[in-house]
Design a protein around this nucleic acid. Sequence first.
DNA 1: ACATGAAGTATACGCCATATACTTCGGAGG
DNA 2: CCTCCGAAGTATATGGCGTATACTTCATGT
Lengths: 276, 276
Amino acid sequence: MPDPERSTELLWGTRARRGLDLDTIVRTAIDLADREGLGAVSMRRVAEVLGFTTMSLYRHVPGKAELLDLMRDAVTTPPGDEQPADWRSGLEAWARAGLALYQRHPWLIESSGPRAVPGPNAVAQFERALSIVAATGLPPAQIVAVVTLVGGFVESAARQVVHTIAAERESGLTHEEFWGARDSLYEHLDRYPTLSRIYEQGGYDEPLDPFEFGLQRVLDGVATLVRDEKRDESWCVVCGDPVAVTGKGRPKEYCSRACQQKAYRKRTSAPGRDPG
Amino acid sequence: MPDPERSTELLWGTRARRGLDLDTIVRTAIDLADREGLGAVSMRRVAEVLGFTTMSLYRHVPGKAELLDLMRDAVTTPPGDEQPADWRSGLEAWARAGLALYQRHPWLIESSGPRAVPGPNAVAQFERALSIVAATGLPPAQIVAVVTLVGGFVESAARQVVHTIAAERESGLTHEEFWGARDSLYEHLDRYPTLSRIYEQGGYDEPLDPFEFGLQRVLDGVATLVRDEKRDESWCVVCGDPVAVTGKGRPKEYCSRACQQKAYRKRTSAPGRDPG
DNA sequence: ACATGAAGTATACGCCATATACTTCGGAGG
DNA sequence: CCTCCGAAGTATATGGCGTATACTTCATGT
């Protein structure tokens, strides 16, 4: 069948380039997600943007799930290697960097779940957090738990921000416009005394930033834990075994009379050292 | 197109219909979601279970979005009216009740967003939390922020649990089975020193319960805030104006010499009261 | 020169929400 | 008693989705 269009293409060499690779597909999908949200990322849509058919993508990627895995890994930046001054400022910076990543790529929030296989960059971020928290001297299981807590907090706070932005784009209404139009809801709220009182006292006039407020509370909570652990878990300076702490009087330094004696002998036999 | 106004009407209204009625539809949908997950809730599926055509549902509910709104409020139990001993135990119980709700109805996690119109029960729960936190004496905006923080924490912790359970059902593999089979991932983890060390020290052998651990840290953080606010925001017992706190010596009780004198006069003139 | 196999394509299936236009049927009014 | 109305329920269609299957095209290696 004669096809003048096809002939023109061939003659003038403007035919769509054959050459579609994984990297291009992933980048295109990320671009689409950044600009129009995860909902805009469909195999059809990605292929359309690239000027290929839907099924052409399946030559390079097994399915949509895997495409999302690749997108996630591609945007996750590994941590820098500056050493933080202390665990608190380190965790604070780590949390802020996490929020920033979610803000750059809001679709990350919806795309990840507890079965998402982590890539090298994600693990590097996790390693970083562990090493920061390890400086507290907390026992291993608590280090993991603290990182899980702070990580969960960041994700949770990011989810609020990101959902709000997504809803604004999809509906064309800002947060304030949307809730401002819910008159039929507010009519019912008089029945709730504390809610009404707090509203009247201006509790909603200038809401505190949930991320900054929450982060400080969570870190305060971790600080409390660090202090407590320091207080009631002390170690014998000789053998390293735990020493029971009574909380009264001068803190014990040795776990037993034997260790105390060992330290004494070492002290008195050492040259150039005042005897105790 | 989701219609929040209509949802508000349905959630808060008292109108009832006959035949295939709203209540039946909502209950059926909840049942479906409880048993097979939110993914199983489609208009087709709900109608099929009820023995009607898909479109028959639209006689009673405007669309799927509104159906979800109704499902959400239907399963949200209003708070009891027992008075908590103190804000901390009150918030703790509130948080646990929240987690339990999510565990009873895991689909709640995925169904709600920041634009979900709250029904009477959800608002009652919010009111409850506000009244508990109000007992701390924190300023209004901080009360709201604390409730937001704890609510967010509960949702975040619930999301972990619920996603894990959902993934187990969908894949037929337990959490341990799934991650146990990721050998090709673990091969790469030697490069991360802290991660390896913590693993070797048994940091993953008996993980701390993320909910219980996190909740205590968050509440510790709130407690720190309450103490701090108490310390540097004190009020004159006579006129209520703020009193500057130096942090050293006996805390001042009066904002000025005038108030101190006023209190003295009142004290000495009161009958049946020892002069100070 | 021709087989091979990868790249890209066309079509189809079974899901989804829902718009539109229909049939059915109980009950109120004439 | 009949007629008509409006609500309840139905049938069909549209345009989206992921992807299975089977095809054409075409550069390359022998």
